[in-house]
Write a protein that binds this DNA or RNA. Sequence first.
DNA 1: GCTAGTTGCTAATGGCCATTAGCTGATCTC
DNA 2: GAGATCAGCTAATGGCCATTAGCAACTAGC
Lengths: 347, 347
Amino acid sequence: MGRGIPKRPTQADIARLAGVSQATVSLVLNERDSGARISTETRDRVLAAMREWGYVANPSARSLAGGRNRIIGVYTFEPVFPTTGVDFYFPFLLGMEQEAAELGHDLLLFTSAGGDRQIFRDGSTRLALADGALLLGRNPNVEEIEQLRDSGYPFVYVGHREVTGAPISYVAADYTTATQQLTQRLFEQGHERVAYARIGEGEAQPSRDREKGFRQAFRAGGKLIGPVWTLESAQDVAGLVDEIVAAGITGLVAEQQLLAEQVRAAAGRRGLSIPDDLSVVVLGDPTGAEHDDVEWTGLEVPRQEMGRAATRLLVRSLDAEERAAVRESVACTIIPGTTAGAPGRSR
Amino acid sequence: MGRGIPKRPTQADIARLAGVSQATVSLVLNERDSGARISTETRDRVLAAMREWGYVANPSARSLAGGRNRIIGVYTFEPVFPTTGVDFYFPFLLGMEQEAAELGHDLLLFTSAGGDRQIFRDGSTRLALADGALLLGRNPNVEEIEQLRDSGYPFVYVGHREVTGAPISYVAADYTTATQQLTQRLFEQGHERVAYARIGEGEAQPSRDREKGFRQAFRAGGKLIGPVWTLESAQDVAGLVDEIVAAGITGLVAEQQLLAEQVRAAAGRRGLSIPDDLSVVVLGDPTGAEHDDVEWTGLEVPRQEMGRAATRLLVRSLDAEERAAVRESVACTIIPGTTAGAPGRSR
DNA sequence: GCTAGTTGCTAATGGCCATTAGCTGATCTC
DNA sequence: GAGATCAGCTAATGGCCATTAGCAACTAGC
């Protein structure tokens, strides 16, 4: 390579070399049927010069000059790695990449936000380099989302998010339907007393969607609503199992796999087994789970498909020039699993 | 929202609002100690205007105006998905993202190349949008790499690649050392006749590196070199096992896990078991493997660390302004596994 | 009261491209 | 042979920013 940084040729350089004007080079480059015509000879001469000199359009200048960049930003509100784990985010990314590839876009991963993860810092956002962005994360900064929405920047949230004021676009997993189906299935298997349990506050939208499905199943079955327990932490599971036994619950809808695993352990210590004494369905949240070899009955979050759908939605809205919030929902797959069955001997 | 696309305020807008010049806005934005001084009052007035109007610097213009982009491109020579599998590709990406985040860079995934994966198509490469790129893939187009090198574009190959002409930068896994260690371990366990086998041509650099380590172990042990078999396809494994038996081989160094799996199956059909009758070590290539529950003795490709190292290398060379090819190698972890032991009853 | 130095700002330029209005010379029309 | 048409090109502009040279006003020195 040698000394210094070799200057990349510009359109002006190519123009000089081919004996034409810069404008002609640009016209040759962006072959459109926009009035201007270029003779075949000239075109060939320009193309030859471009090849010979390895001309490459400067994307910054290009985007500055008005055009799109065909870049989709991906922004996560949390560091991708240790907390939630690779397994959680990667399927989303995979779906995004697949769809982006099909639609001829590249993906810009905004990783540089660093620890505190702010879109707007020192009054500038790198997001603008992309034509639009896909937002991801369980605990988004709502104010930032609203600010972004008000800025007119096009984005799609991957996951169900509601904010105050004007609506935003998102692609959500249909937790409600899947939870309703799973709960209903418990009823069909003969369970009379079914409860819902989660760890954490339950204020997040996905959490509320799931609970909604739980309620719907009761309403559809003409039953009184079952108990909903919200635990502070995994420490409280022993108490939860006490409650379950005391209340004569035979079917448990567990929001997190972690919770289900803990319940299984605590139940085991009491001599209760799953699904013989207690049926458990898991609503797909893998946070903190140990992934033991149990095949939990439950739902699968269609992460890859969500990634694809969100990308599709975003690109469509970029093409549309008509910005309006759009929502889409993707069905969850039901996993039969082995942890739900007819109520057994415990009663 | 609403009709049309809201125009983002520019420095000129802010300048007008704050009653200063565009240059002043720029100076306030890029607070440096570059000669020019701005009074506190003016600065505050400008900052207030920026906040009020939600000013955001246009990254394209910014990068056009000379600076770096703080974007690292990631380019794979093969479609990421079906062939090599998620498991193969993702750890690299993970390492890249971690390191990029620490170094304050974003990652641009070039997915749009589409089916045939060419860097240079119609004389233009999108790579240029990034300050530099990380290249990835088992079967790169060597001509393209050379063209890229000659263009002066900074890149680092993830994996060991040698090309003709001037050298390129890369980060390689140290297959040679790991293979030598594994082979040596077979000797230490008492194996006298040890062979090497692979599926495919063996022309790729990683393949040659491994074979080199194999040879080194023999040289270090003062032994004659053992046989190296290169199979056309997995179909030929039955024949390979015949050869192994005929030659009295008790230790096999298998390049691909797929090969090891096939050998195990074929050996099983002959009543031979691993490691009782044949010790097998696997050199970490998971292509096409079924990932059965065997814990193969072998090496682990330090993919994540390679991603990190490559990113570090690239950023360093971007900062350096001194382009010179640099190579780095990352040690492989040895996996003890259960498929290698002292030679047993078969002899 | 004059000079030298300093502070605080601005005008101008360049970076590379896309787009448009318009110019030149050739061909065609009747 | 004058006017109309058209193919093929170019000059000019704008998009947004960073940087630099330099100007105006003010202060300090003596």
